[in-house]
Amino acid sequence: MDTRTALALVLGGLAVYLAYYHPVLGAAIGIGVVVVTLLLSLLEK
């Protein structure tokens, strides 16, 4: 497992934890992840 995968797993776990205990913050994190993913996919092309 490389560093990027480990970091992604840790951040994903943190996001799930926050979404469970603070749904509004979890929704904001989820939207942010979607936006960043879309931007990265657009920049790769």
Results as ranks from 00 to 15, higher is better:
L43N: 07
L11N: 11
G30L: 06
I29S: 00
A27L: 15
V34L: 15
K45R: 14
L38Y: 14
A8F: 07
R4S: 12
Y17C: 07
V10R: 11
Y17Q: 06
G32Y: 12
R4Y: 07
K45L: 05
A8S: 10
Y17D: 05
S41Y: 09
L42S: 05
L7G: 01
E44F: 05
A15K: 03
V35H: 03
I31W: 10
L11M: 14
L42P: 00
I31Y: 10
L14Y: 11
M1V: 11
V33E: 10
T3G: 06
V36R: 08
L39W: 03
L9P: 00
Y17V: 05
A15S: 11
A6L: 13
V33H: 07
G26K: 01
G12E: 02
L18D: 04
G32S: 09
L39Y: 06
H22F: 08
Y17I: 05
V35N: 04
G13A: 03
P23R: 10
L43P: 02
G32A: 09
T3M: 12
I29D: 06
L25Q: 12
V33I: 14
R4D: 12
V16H: 02
L40F: 11
L11T: 12
L7W: 08
G13V: 00
G32H: 06
G12Q: 02
H22M: 06
V34M: 13
L39E: 07
V24S: 11
A15L: 02
V36C: 04
G13M: 01
L42Q: 12
K45A: 10
H22T: 08
G12L: 01
L43F: 08
I29A: 03
V34P: 01
S41W: 09
I31Q: 07
G26Q: 00
V34N: 05
G12W: 03
V33P: 01
G30I: 01
A6G: 04
G30P: 01
L18K: 08
V24M: 15
T3H: 12
V36L: 13
A28Y: 03
G13F: 01
L25A: 15
T37K: 09
V36A: 09
K45Y: 05
G13W: 01
S41R: 12
S41P: 01
G13S: 07
G32D: 13
L42C: 05
T37S: 15
G12A: 02
L43M: 13
R4L: 07
L14G: 06
G13T: 01
T5R: 05
G13Q: 08
G30K: 02
L18M: 09
A8Q: 08
L39R: 12
G26H: 02
V34Q: 02
T3P: 03
K45T: 11
G12D: 02
A6E: 01
A8T: 04
G12I: 01
L11V: 00
V34A: 15
G26D: 07
E44Y: 08
V33T: 14
S41F: 10
I31V: 15
T5S: 10
A6M: 10
V10F: 10
L38A: 14
Y21R: 15
I31H: 06
V35Q: 06
A28G: 14
V24H: 04
A19C: 04
G26R: 02
L42K: 13
M1I: 09
T3A: 14
I29R: 04
T37G: 15
G32L: 03
I31P: 04
G12H: 07
Y17A: 14
L42F: 13
G30N: 02
L40S: 09
A15I: 00
V33Y: 12
E44K: 14
V10C: 00
Y21N: 12
